[in-house]
């Protein structure tokens, strides 16, 4: 379980003092007093327009961003007290997988996280094999990262997170720049992980791919949660905050609207 209590995050200078003694705050408020719980095994969608604070919010889950105020806990332990435990429990893929892949080969990259956990070599090999299998890239451990397509890189990034065997997998805009087959492939992997018991958090400004599989949707606007509920309740309000929603979404309860190209 990931728990946020009264979390606020700011970027930039804080309280720059003026000569007359008054202080002004010229920082940017990215996350504004957010309280949120993400139970194990939940498929959560965090939706919002660009700059709404989605990425900052989810980066507090594993301590990549430290809140200016409030607390974030993973499985009952404050993230600030045990960063390694938080990062092992909350796997994350970045918006651009090129920012995430740190090795020259697929196998080397997927093994990177488990190696850092200090696991025995046999366990690392098992996890790498299982993670590559989970993203349909079994037997491609020796492939060079630079030769992969965008969809394959996204899948390797997911494999790298899965190899940590996290309780939650957080994917930041996982479909950006992918063509339809690649989107479908990544979505299938996420659904499979969710079906296998892993909690999945998808950060997106476009609900069309994922709303049919979400247990819950959280809408962010200017760093604040403006809606939090099942898709049938949340989706109708999201287009007002710049989120692309499926055409013909049935607010009465059809949570499985198909993807549409209509805005």
């Amino acid at each position: 379980m990931i728990t946020l209590e009264d979390v606020t995050c700011r970027y930039g200078a804080h309280d720059r003092g003026e000569d007359d003694g008054d202080a002004i705050d010229d920082s940017v408020l990215a996350v504004d007093d957010v309280t949120l719980s993400v139970p194990d095994g939940e498929f959560l969608v965090v939706a919002g327009a660009n700059g709404s604070g989605k990425t900052t919010l989810v980066r507090t889950f594993n301590g990549l961003v430290r809140p200016d105020s409030g607390t974030v806990s993973v499985n009952g332990t404050p993230v600030s007290e045990d960063l390694v435990a938080a990062r092992a429990a909350v796997g994350m893929t970045f918006q651009d997988p090129r920012d995430q892949l740190v090795s020259a080969t697929v196998g080397g990259d997927v093994a990177f996280g488990p190696e850092n956990l200090g696991l025995p070599r046999e366990e690392i090999d098992r996890r790498v094999e299982a993670a590559l299998d989970a993203v349909d890239m079994a037997g491609r451990g020796d492939d060079r990262i630079t030769t992969l397509s965008g969809g394959e890189r996204q899948r390797v990034a997911i494999a790298g997170a899965l190899a940590m065997e996290p309780d939650h997998l957080v994917c930041d805009e996982p479909f950006t720049g992918l063509d339809e087959p690649a989107r479908e492939s990544v979505l299938t992997r996420l659904r499979e992980r969710h079906a296998g018991g892993t909690g999945v958090v998808v950060v997106t400004h476009d609900l069309r791919d994922v709303v049919g599989f979400a247990d819950r949707v959280v809408g962010l606007d200017d760093g604040r949660i403006v809606v939090d509920g099942p898709p049938s309740e949340a989706v109708p309000t999201l287009s007002d905050i710049g989120v692309r929603v499926p055409a013909g979404f049935d607010a009465a309860g059809d949570d499985h609207a198909g993807r549409s190209d209509e805005p």
Binding site: N62, G63, L64, L83, V84, R87, A88, M92, F94, Q100, V102, F112, G113, P114, E115, N116, L117, G118, L119, P120, R121, I124, G160, M164
Partner: peptide
């Protein structure tokens, strides 16, 4: 590196 628990003494 931080997201993937970069360690000084990995396996």
């Amino acid at each position: 590196l931080a997201a993937r628990c970069f360690a000084w003494n990995p396996t």
